[in-house]
C-alpha cells in the first residue's frame, strides 16, 4: 500500500522467483560465450580463460544419446565427449533430488522460450498458454516420449547425432555456423513462434531430454506439495504453472511435466504462506 495524492493505492503484482531468472541469465550467457569462443578458437583465436568446448560437449543430453553406444562398444557417438556423460550424471542427481530443475533453471533454450513468452503474455493476457484444450494438451504432452524413442533409436543404429539436424538448441547457439542444418533452424523458428502462444512449447511437447528428466517427477526426493488445510483454492498456482499442471487439485505434484520452477509456490504466486512448498517432508 502506498499513498498517492491522499489516496491509498495497492500495487499488486505476482511475486516471481527472481533468483531463478538470475540463474537462467547466467547459464544463457555462459553458453553464448562458450559457443562464440568455440567458433573463435576454431579460427585460431578465442579467449584462453573461457572454455572453447563445442555445444555438444556442454549438453547433458549428449550423454543420454550416447549411452547405448557407450554400453555396447565403449565408444562415444561422434561429436560427443566425456563431458556430456559427466553433465548427464550431474543433472540426473539434481533431478533425483529436485525433479527436472535443469529444465526450469538451467536450460538456455527453455529460458529463451520464456523470454519470447513474455510478449505472448502481454498480447494475450490470461488467454496466454491456454489456447489448447486441456484434453488435447494432456495427450500432446506424451509426444516427447515418442521423439525420445526415435532419437535413441536412430542414434544407436547410426552411431551419429541425427537429432542434431532438428535440434533447436544447437541451432539457437550455433546459427552462424555451417554445421547447423536448415531443418534445425526451421524447428527453432517454429518453437519461438509457438512460444508467443504457448509457454515453453518445445519443453512441453517435443524435448526428448525433458522426457527423460520428467520421469524423475514420479520419485524425486523434494517435491512440490500443497497443504490442503491452508489452501484457499483460488487456483493461482495452476494458472501460473507454465506447464499447465493443475497444482490446486493435487496434494503432491507428480506430473511428468513439472520443471521445478517454483512459480506456483508460496514464495511466488500462492498468497498463503507455507501452503505450496518444495519439501522432502509432508504437509498438512
Amino acid at each position: 500500500m502506498v499513498t498517492v495524492f491522499g489516496k491509498r493505492i495497492r500495487f499488486f503484482r505476482p511475486r516471481t522467483i527472481w533468483v531463478r531468472r538470475v540463474v537462467q541469465w547466467f547459464f544463457f550467457l555462459l553458453i553464448v560465450l562458450i559457443s562464440i569462443n568455440h567458433t573463435l578458437a576454431e579460427g585460431g583465436g578465442g579467449l584462453s580463460f573461457l572454455s572453447s568446448a563445442s555445444l555438444h560437449a556442454v549438453c547433458p543430453f549428449g550423454g543420454v544419446e550416447t549411452l547405448y553406444t557407450f554400453a555396447a562398444s565403449g565408444l562415444l557417438v561422434k561429436k560427443i565427449h566425456d563431458s556430456s556423460l559427466v553433465l548427464a550424471g550431474i543433472v540426473l542427481i539434481l533431478s533425483f533430488l529436485f525433479g527436472p530443475v535443469f529444465c526450469g533453471w538451467v536450460c538456455p533454450l527453455g529460458t529463451v522460450q520464456e523470454w519470447v513468452g513474455k510478449f505472448g503474455k502481454k498480447i494475450f493476457k490470461r488467454r496466454y498458454n491456454h489456447f489448447i484444450p486441456t484434453r488435447i494438451d494432456s495427450i500432446l504432452h506424451y509426444a516427447r516420449y515418442g521423439i525420445l524413442a526415435w532419437v535413441l533409436y536412430v542414434t544407436a543404429t547410426s552411431g551419429t547425432l541425427i537429432f542434431e539436424s532438428y535440434d533447436p538448441y544447437f541451432a539457437l547457439f550455433n546459427f552462424w555456423s555451417t554445421e547447423v542444418a536448415w531443418s534445425a533452424i526451421a524447428v527453432l523458428g517454429v518453437t519461438l513462434l509457438l512460444s508467443v502462444f504457448v509457454e515453453r512449447p518445445w519443453c512441453k511437447y517435443a524435448c526428448p531430454y525433458g522426457a527423460v528428466l520428467g520421469v524423475t517427477n514420479l520419485f524425486r526426493v523434494f517435491s512440490i506439495k500443497r497443504a490442503e488445510s491452508t489452501c484457499k483454492a483460488d487456483g493461482a498456482c495452476s494458472i501460473m504453472c507454465p506447464m499447465n499442471i493443475p497444482v490446486d487439485s493435487v496434494k503432491v505434484v507428480r506430473d511428468h511435466q513439472c520443471i521445478s520452477c517454483l512459480e506456483c509456490t508460496s514464495e511466488a504466486i500462492c498468497p498463503v504462506a507455507k501452503t505450496v512448498v518444495l519439501t522432502s517432508g509432508g504437509v498438512k
Binding site: I17, R20, L94, L97, F98, V106, T279, S280, G281
Partner: peptide, 18 residues
C-alpha cells in the same frame, strides 16, 4: 523445506562442483 535461494545455491554447487 527448500526455498528458491538455497535451491539456486545447490544447483550451482552441484553443477560446478560436479
Amino acid at each position: 523445506t527448500l526455498t528458491s535461494k538455497p535451491l539456486a545455491v545447490i544447483v550451482l554447487i552441484l553443477v560446478f562442483g560436479g
